[in-house]
């Protein structure tokens, strides 16, 4: 028996990177997965890839923008129609439209960041709660970032929304307990395609400072997500699991 046998999981931003890695790991652990993302072709490719991977679970792909509450509602309705249950929600989708100092940030980009990263988490959690979890229970896993714990020369506002996710994880754990457990993962620099610009050229410099001497992988985050989604963590709620190779254990966070 696998740890997520028969469970149904919705993963926002599930067509690539960390979200796709979580979908892959969930399916290998016995779950059916619903991947939500904005681009249809990316979803089709991701679905095909997932079906070639380990596991026997079904894969549903749904075009949805994580920052649109209506899309969340529709994706959850599709999930209920297709599978009849929704045990796990992974709030993974995020956007980062702005790099630079807080004082230079314009309102439209601030609103977009909040809309997807912060309000998205609320909207998707609400839809999952009303459709299934309020009655049958479930687990919510929020993909935040170690950026939510530290200061950064470039992505300060993005990080502020990640800090908000960490606090909202505790708040939702309080509001939705004991039916639903809510936890977060705060990854450090993960070697995704999307973040290639962040890590590729600087990999030796970045890794030299990390206690574990390497950057994170999608699998590192996916393994933790399986743990938090499953009964293996049945008495954990309101927590943030930091996966950063020890970066935040050292006082070297701010370094450009």
């Amino acid at each position: 028996m696998k740890v997520l046998d028969g469970r149904v999981a919705v993963i926002t931003g599930g067509s690539r990177g960390i979200g796709l890695g979580i979908a892959r790991a969930f399916r290998a652990a016995g779950a059916h997965v619903v991947i939500a993302a904005r681009k249809e072709q990316g979803l089709k490719d991701a679905r095909a890839e997932l079906l070639r991977g380990e596991g026997t679970g079904d894969v549903l792909d749904v075009v949805a923008n994580a920052g649109e509450p209506d899309h969340a509602q529709r994706c959850v309705a599709d999930t209920m129609l297709h599978f009849g249950r929704l045990d796990v929600l992974v709030n993974n989708a995020a956007t980062n439209p702005y790099m630079g100092d807080l004082l230079e940030l314009d309102l439209p980009r601030a609103e977009k960041t909040v809309r997807v990263n912060q309000y998205g988490m609320i909207a998707w959690s609400r839809s999952a709660w009303h459709a299934w979890m309020s009655e049958h229970g479930g687990t919510i896993v929020n993909i935040a970032s170690v950026g939510g714990l530290i200061v950064d020369p470039q992505i300060g506002y993005y990080n502020a929304t990640k800090a908000a996710m960490l606090l909202m994880t505790r708040q939702l754990a309080y509001e939705l307990g004991p039916k639903v457990r809510v936890n977060a993962i705060a990854p450090g620099v993960i070697k995704t395609e999307l973040a290639r610009a962040v890590w590729e050229a600087r990999e030796p410099v970045l890794t030299a400072k990390l206690p574990l001497r390497r950057l994170g992988t999608v699998e590192d985050v996916a393994n933790a997500a399986v743990f938090l989604a499953s009964e293996a963590s049945s008495w954990m709620t309101g927590q943030a699991l930091v996966l950063d190779g020890g970066a935040t254990a050292l006082p070297i966070a701010v370094d450009s």
Binding site: P211, D220, F227, W235, M236, T237, G246, A249
Partner: peptide, 27 residues
Amino acid sequence: GALLFLASDASSYCTGQVMVVDGGWTA
């Protein structure tokens, strides 16, 4: 679960952390 996660390679990128298993007491 928490013990096996931390003991095994499942947590191979996790170090210097405190895993709190308290049903939400400290959250």
